[in-house]
Design a protein around this nucleic acid. Structure first.
Length: 589
RNA sequence: GGCGUUGUAGCUCAGUUGGUUAGAGCGCCGCCCUGUCACGGCGGAGGUCGAGGGUUCGAGCCCCUUCAACGUCGCCA
């Protein structure tokens, strides 16, 4: 007997005709004609049709007993399909395996949802039986793309002499920013490790350690409520370099995204990537992560309302820290009252008190406040916002930050309604020139915009004492399609400056010592200037795959409520285990 | 933590104003079928209407509570 080749289910072509082949995989579908049985065999690589003829009775009988998702090994001879029976929908559709032997490696119960099609299934069911969901084309494709993205990242940095260095998952709790996951210590009852929110200080210590060029595909943990684009644990591309400037890091990371997109998706992003300042982004798009897949920038129209008798507009037209913003809605004049009511509701959902709209058609204009407006004002606004015949303008007035935010969300809403947010389009941009500190409107305190290790712009160190809110940070964000892909900065490498920043943030010397003493000490032993960046790989993969949830690019994701429905975690543990860890169960309210 | 949507057969869903025995497609089981590929034909099984309580002569439908998934706001240095 001729040698039996093992081939994947997607690998058969007319080249193999005549060869004896063993195919192993899952029963994708059975078509039993009584006197002839077709079994489609599936693996990650593809699908191949095998044919069983009653002439080979033993194999035929087994074939008739097969059910979807049984695992089988089929042996037979590759042959060209009879003319007219080719299947153009299948990559292997010109050939088939004439089976003469089949063994059942494992039977499958009827699956709880169809595995052989990408039909919509309740997500909790998909999560409970994730291993079945993983067999389906969508996740097979997404995980493949994710692999290619990460592989390209590793290749890119390897070619540039970076070291991938692993940092620990069990570290010291440094309770800043996001809530941490804590891990009890058995050997030191009552003490805890924390899981890293990110390897931020560790990678800086690697720079102090002379590694110079570091990257890592790093798992991070944050105990915050999740969203469609969040999970309690997530993966970052973490990068850090010594002796670099903002422009060095951005140039490197821009090369990286282009390399990754080319290698993993075959797409060449338009370069150079647009660069916006933080102030520009807020002014023109009402967001520090603008979606540049479409235009429709916000337009300031406060000037046209300087003399208006309309009280709330007059107030914001004159107030120094207010804006009146117009969002253009192309074709919006065709909208009905009901549509505008819907837009007003949407605006209220974004935090607006209300929404003023004006629409333009050849012979005139209409408005939600038509009785209060005059032709001159309306035409001035139209001129500024460059509204065409048939367009509408949505006007939002309020304090600068709130009005920008609301108008920015309205802009996205309009873009969504007009189908301008094409998931197959990729609009990257840089946002730079962030302030180092911000005012927290709730507490009134000064808080950092990025994180407390971010360096101020060169020459602005002195302003930290006199006017901290005016200090620009050496901080840059990479944004894709309105999603923040990652943040980076040049770090503080001077211990005195680092201490000063902590103090501005309200920490006492004693607190700094307790929380960050090891780090402050390291800064005293020759810390090189350094900076870097981190990207959210889950989000990156989500956008690359055209998905709207990072759960669809993670093999075993948790639900929005942090539950693992497959393993049923978190779950109770025996009291004995708790005792060993020095823990006692609290009574549940 | 707040708000919203959803929850009916294994899956995806329909279910009128509260009214007799809760339906469809797919899947599943059985029989038939030698060129199908969403094979086809015939027959059949399958329901705690998420859970608990209430209103009512009567609840899948109305009310309250609760659970879950998802979305959203807070939060996420």
């Amino acid at each position: 007997m001729a040698e039996v080749l093992r081939v994947s289910c997607g690998g058969l072509s007319p080249q193999e005709v005549g060869a004896r082949i063993e195919l192993r995989g899952w029963v994708h579908r059975r078509r039993d004609h009584g006197g002839l049985v077709f079994i489609d065999v599936r693996d990650r690589d593809g699908i191949t049709q095998s044919v069983f003829d009653p002439a080979v009775a033993s194999a035929f009988d087994v074939a008739q007993s097969l059910r979807n998702e049984d695992v089988i090994a089929v042996t037979g001879t590759v042959r060209i399909r009879p003319p007219g029976t080719e299947n153009p929908k299948l990559a292997t559709g010109d050939v088939e395996l004439a089976a003469d032997d089949v063994s059942v490696l494992a039977r499958s119960e009827t699956p709880p949802f169809p595995v052989n099609v990408d039909a919509d299934v309740d997500e909790s069911l998909r999560l409970k039986y994730r291993y079945l969901d993983l067999r389906r084309p969508r996740l097979q494709r997404n995980l493949t793309i994710r692999h290619k993205l990460v592989k390209a990242m590793r290749d890119f940095f390897d070619e540039r002499d970076f070291l991938e260095v692993e940092t620990p998952a069990l570290i010291k709790s440094t309770p800043e920013g996001a809530r941490e996951y804590l891990v009890p210590s058995r050997l030191y009852p009552g003490d805890f490790y924390a899981l890293p929110q990110s390897p931020q200080m560790l990678k800086q210590l690697l720079m102090i350690g002379g590694i110079g060029r570091y990257m890592q595909i790093a798992r991070c943990f944050r105990d915050e409520d999740s969203r469609a684009d969040r999970q309690p644990e997530f993966t970052q591309l973490d990068v850090e370099l010594s002796f670099v400037t903002e422009d060095d890091v951005m140039a490197l990371m821009e090369d990286c995204i282009a390399y990754v997109w080319r290698r993993a998706l075959g797409i060449e992003p338009a370069r150079p990537l647009p660069r916006l300042t933080h102030a520009q982004a807020l002014r023109d798009y009402g967001s520090d992560k603008p979606d540049l897949r479409f235009g429709l920038p916000l337009v300031d129209v406060a000037g046209t309302f300087a003399q208006t008798p309309i009280a709330f507009l007059a107030e914001h037209a004159r107030a120094p820290h207010s804006r009146i913003v117009a969002v253009r809605y192309p074709g919006g004049a065709a909208l009905s009252r009901r549509d505008f009511d819907g837009l007003t509701e949407a605006a209220k959902g974004f935090g607006a008190g209300g929404l003023v709209w004006v629409s333009f058609s050849g012979d005139g204009w209409k408005s939600s406040i038509a009785r209060l407006l005059d032709d001159a004002t309306v035409h001035a606004v139209r001129e500024l916002a460059e509204a065409q015949d048939g367009d509408a303008l949505l006007l939002v007035a309020g304090p600068r930050a709130a009005a920008s935010d609301i108008a920015g969300r309205l802009r996205l809403h309009v873009g969504e309604r007009l189908g301008l947010r094409d998931p197959a389009a990729f609009a990257f941009c840089w946002v730079v020139g962030f302030p180092l500190f911000e005012h927290d409107p709730d507490s009134g305190a000064i808080v950092f915009t990025h994180h407390p290790f971010t360096a101020p712009a060169p020459g602005q160190e002195g302003l930290i004492d006199t006017d901290p809110l005016s200090v620009r940070a050496q901080h840059y964000d990479l944004v894709l399609n309105g999603v923040e892909l990652g943040s980076g900065s040049i770090r503080i490498h001077d211990v005195a400056l680092q201490r000063k920043v902590f103090e501005i943030l309200g920490h006492t010397r004693a607190e700094i010592e307790t929380r960050f003493g090891f780090f402050m000490e390291a800064l005293r032993f020759g810390a090189p200037p350094h900076g870097g960046m981190a990207w959210g790989i889950d989000r990156l993969a989500m956008l690359a795959c055209g998905e709207t949830s990072i759960r669809d690019v993670i093999a075993f994701p948790k639900t929005q409520a942090f539950r693992d429905l497959m393993m049923d975690a978190p779950s109770a543990v025996p009291d004995a285990l708790l005792g060993e860890l020095g823990l006692r169960r609290a009574s549940r309210g």
